[in-house]
Amino acid sequence: MEHFSHLSFWYILVMSFNTGADAAAGPIWFFPRVFTLQNYAYVFQYDRLQTAFVVTTLRCMIGPIISVFVTMLAAFALSKRFLPGRRTILFFFMIPMFISGSIISNYVVMVELGLLNNFLVYVLPGAFGFFSMVIMRTHIEELPIELQESAMIDGAGYSRIFMQVILPLSKPILAAFLFFSVAGNWLDYYTNLVYVTDRSLSTLQFVLYEIINRTEASTLIDFTKTTGAAQRRLMSMQNNTVPTPEVIKMTVMVVVTFPILFVYPFFQKYFVKGMLTGAVKA
């Protein structure tokens, strides 16, 4: 529902621990009126949830590392003004920012690359971001060039300079973009919806999306099969035994959001500094 986006996280958390029948009776504010763990038990009993959690965790571990490394590597190369064809490369990288493909064209590309029903579809398409590369390149250009020159005098090549000079000095900006990438991979279900039909490769977000749809559909079907007094008895019985779609939505929101809230404190000390570093060129 549209107004859910305006609710506070605390209200969502409280609703997820309240019974559906009581939540339907009136607004809940600070604490659950009728506390229950049945909503979470209903969500976590889904048989595909564990496999989806493993797939999503692997995606959030592998995808962001590859994305940040590839983008940083491109930023390091394009920070060299003597790179042949530098302006041409930047121009071609810039085109997708203004002209993007349609769903059909993107699907055809995934088919030709053999990425349908392939775990790599979660990793490779997002391995490079031009906007992130521009910020990283600006950050590298702001680093003292003397550090790279002294390393070259000591016999270091570009690969060693990148690994031992550039990356250690770029921890704040790497941490910031790593967090963004983790959050993006964690919250994405569109890729699974369009490019993956293998149920063993389903992500957590897609499975939770299915749980919400199944709950709403089963409630609607059971309701339309009965009429009159039998319908009212069914509604009363369901409200006391089965979580309603509204509290399931709240529970799913908590399940989706909690891991990001858990990860954020580890990146917090780098977050603000990383966002400011390289954002404005001196």
Rank of each mutant, 00 (worst) to 15 (best):
G274T: 05
D22S: 07
V14I: 14
V55G: 00
F180S: 04
E146K: 08
Q38P: 01
F31D: 07
L124Y: 07
L193F: 15
I89D: 04
F53D: 02
E141P: 01
L49N: 03
A25P: 07
E2F: 13
T257K: 01
V242A: 00
P259E: 05
F30A: 10
E246Y: 06
A52Q: 01
Y209A: 14
V134A: 06
A127N: 02
C60A: 15
T227E: 13
L73G: 08
S170H: 10
T244S: 14
M110D: 02
W186N: 05
T88V: 11
Q238A: 10
V165H: 00
I28M: 09
T191H: 06
M61E: 05
E2P: 08
A230T: 13
F131A: 14
V254W: 04
C60P: 04
I99S: 03
V43K: 00
P64M: 03
E246G: 01
V280E: 12
Y264N: 07
T215K: 03
D222E: 08
T71A: 07
N117Y: 06
L187H: 07
I66H: 04
F128N: 06
P265N: 13
A75E: 06
L49F: 11
M253I: 11
I104V: 15
L143D: 03
E142Y: 02
V255Y: 01
L90H: 05
V68K: 04
V109S: 12
L13Y: 11
S236Y: 13
V14Y: 08
T19L: 01
F92D: 08
L208D: 00
G274Y: 03
N18T: 12
